[in-house]
Write a protein that binds this DNA or RNA. Structure first.
Lengths: 202, 202
DNA sequence: CGACTGACAGATATTGAAATCTGTCAGTTG
DNA sequence: CAACTGACAGATTTCAATATCTGTCAGTCG
């Protein structure tokens, strides 16, 4: 009674409950129980269970945004920045998959529930990629007609290394080799690539 | 009674039953019923239900091999062959997804059941890619230190356009654009790519 | 004698009744 | 009066009984 119930406290409790029981068993009643309040109170802050889960998902994804935010340094070539950024993303995903499979699975389920949040998240990451590629274009290291389109292509070409549907492949001992090969291919492509625009000419 | 029960007839009936009832409902009893025999007879030809399903899967995948077999023509540049091959594979997958979603889903389920067959299938397709890339290397159109490794990289980079886990994205109206962008990037990479070998130097 | 049947045991799937959960809201409390 | 409770209706999930399926094999048939 001493403290007022905040949205933040509910989110923290929800994360805890999700981690404990998994996405299939976690209920709003569980969250309320963990907070020592009635489940009706939770509904003062989140209109539905789906909204509550979505808020947790958004929080998790925002943490990734922040961690992945690229730092620009004129001394570092764009190809290096790009490789490091992709490696960092891959490492993060792979680590969370191997070190806490249960949480990873929970996360994947939640992500599958709120496509709007995910779309925003993906757009944000591709935006970071775009800025790195733009830096490469500015220094003449990369060549492309359409930075946004190319950033999306790089994202698409590396899906195997960050899309959760491919998580089981991340345990393969040769996966780092495969990653290096794809990044190398993509970087080579960026050095001399002119993607014909959808409406443009050759 | 006139005709003896053949493995071939059982496979055809199994395909029909799978198409009709889906992978979850299709039973060995259904297959036997469709053939007008007791289900015990089916077990004379296939040791288990899993083996039966696997045989159907192998058959389907073999049909893809055959259809995808590249034709070599010295007049056609390797980049064109590669693009056409990838486009053909993408079209085939996308078409089967949009035109007969139910069968596609059934197919995906079966594929998920027999990893050994799938591994063989993937190896076979990557082998076809390898031959195309080798043709490009022979004509100096492509540059690479390791054709097998590069073929795998091209495969990995285009997963979004053939891995069934990404099927829902194939309905996106901009998917062909995304495909073109990735293929263009990959082809540009092949024109000047030296993937540092795992143990080699820069 | 080789191809097939049909009854069987154990494993798996289906079903429907009971329990639990979600979302609402009139009422309680400080 | 703002924050919360707890009882409620309808939706969803659980669970145990029941039915079906898989895989085997002794026995039938031509």
């Amino acid at each position: 009674m001493a403290e007022a119930l905040t949205a933040e406290a509910i989110l923290a409790a929800t994360e805890e409950v999700l981690r404990r029981y998994g996405p299939a068993k976690a209920t709003v009643v569980d969250v309320a129980k963990a907070l020592g309040v009635s489940h009706g109170s939770v509904y003062r802050h989140f209109a539905t269970k789906a909204a509550l889960r979505e808020a947790v998902t958004r929080r998790w994804l925002d943490a990734i945004h922040e961690e992945m935010e690229p730092e620009f340094d004129r001394e570092v070539p764009a190809s290096r920045m790009l490789g490091d950024w992709l490696q960092k993303l891959f490492d993060r995903k792979r680590r969370s998959h191997t070190e806490d499979l249960e949480l990873f699975t929970t996360f994947r389920t939640l992500v599958g529930e709120s496509s709007a949040v995910v779309e925003y998240h993906l757009g944000h990451l591709v935006g970071q990629l775009e800025r790195i590629i733009q830096a490469g274009v500015d220094t003449r290291e990369f060549v492309t007609d359409d930075v946004g389109r190319t950033a999306q292509a790089v994202w698409d070409a590396t899906q195997v290394f960050h899309h959760p549907a491919h998580a089981q492949e991340w345990g393969n001992p040769h996966i780092q080799d495969a990653f290096d090969a794809v990044v190398s291919l993509v970087v080579a492509g960026l050095r001399y690539n002119r993607i014909p625009s959808a409406t443009g000419d050759a």
